[in-house]
Amino acid sequence: MRRLPARRPTIKDIARQAGVSESAVSFALNDRPGVSPATRERVRRVAERLGWQPSAAARALSGEGSATVGLVLARPARTLGVESFFLQLVSGVQEALAVRRLGLLFQVVEDLDAECAVHRRWWAEHRVDGLLVVDPRDQDPRPALLAELALPAVLIGAPGDPGDLSGAVSNLWADDTGAMAAIIGHLHALGHRRIVHIAGLTGLAHTRRRIDSLRSEAQRRGLEETLSVPTDYSDAQGAEATRRVLAMPRPPTAIVYDNDVMAVAGLAVAAQRGLSVPGDLSIVAWDDSILCRNTHPTLTALVRDASAFGRCAAEELIALLDGGPPRQVRRPTPRLTARDSTAAPPVH
């Protein structure tokens, strides 16, 4: 595949090749008086040859249009409508963008290759002026692509390899390792020794960190019967994973779910099997939501403001669009809120 140039052509490039000042280029391209017809024509020919187009950000500043931020999500589309975290995240993003009258271009694709292709197409077509990038992976190809395209971007979530970040890329993240440690500490203090983690998608950097944190905490606390089971985050796979682990010869006394939807599905499976929550089984949801607060029993969950997380990500990208430097921004670790779904394990 042909590699794109490292950056878009600028007014400075046009001025250098046309042999005029940058202000003359601006006058010529914006049909303003101050340059001769011959200079105007020469500048336009150079701009066309270089493939220059006015950026949406520039059009927004001049009142001729609005800048646009791109967000591509490489996840199974069927899982998005029920996952409250991303709905709240996008809501927060949109709230911050609306203050500056910026648009959001959103697309769902099947995999990372398709996401990278969309980023390249948007760059080539001048569709977006910056990108929000979610779900960092191990061996993630996107940081290198973002550096190549030189598009301002914010990576939401700690990268698999922090050394991958370069160029105009900021990073916004929270401590998944510490959050899992808090969950295991809570369950261990209640007396649980058999703990299962119904995890999300494999390959995601935050999934690996949660799994690694579970293993580390289990080793530190002498817990020999812990397990992580990957899923696609859906209620269907969350329920199926719950059935499998509850059918083990020594089933868990506590299950940690990587989102609220799977936790509610697991609660239903426990009820179907005649298990009491929390009498026979304790349940923890990674992300709090109205679902967790309105089930019976209410679900112990990690509480964080996903809308505020989205607003912060959009504000960091706006700062880059305004010419600010890339930043590493750590958000507060999600807070574990104990509710009715966790208690001491049954005594056998």
Rank of each mutant, 00 (worst) to 15 (best):
P33T: 06
R210E: 04
G274F: 09
R45T: 08
Q237G: 12
D305M: 10
R7E: 07
V99D: 14
A181N: 04
M180W: 00
L87V: 14
G160M: 03
I195Y: 05
V154G: 03
D135V: 02
T207P: 01
C312N: 11
D232K: 00
L172S: 09
P5M: 09
A268Y: 08
V69S: 10
H186A: 13
V264P: 08
E125R: 14
G160Q: 08
D340L: 11
P76D: 15
R221Y: 08
R335C: 11
R137W: 03
L281M: 11
N30Q: 10
L50Q: 07
A239P: 01
R335S: 15
G310S: 08
H206Y: 12
E316H: 10
G34Q: 11
E95K: 15
P152M: 10
I283K: 01
P252E: 15
E115S: 11
V154E: 01
A179K: 06
L267F: 08
D175M: 11
N30K: 01
D31C: 07
P230M: 03
P251R: 15
D232A: 06
S91M: 13
L187C: 11
A67F: 05
T337Q: 15
G200H: 02
G92L: 05
V347G: 00
R339T: 12
G324R: 09
T298M: 02
Q88V: 04
S170T: 14
V261I: 03
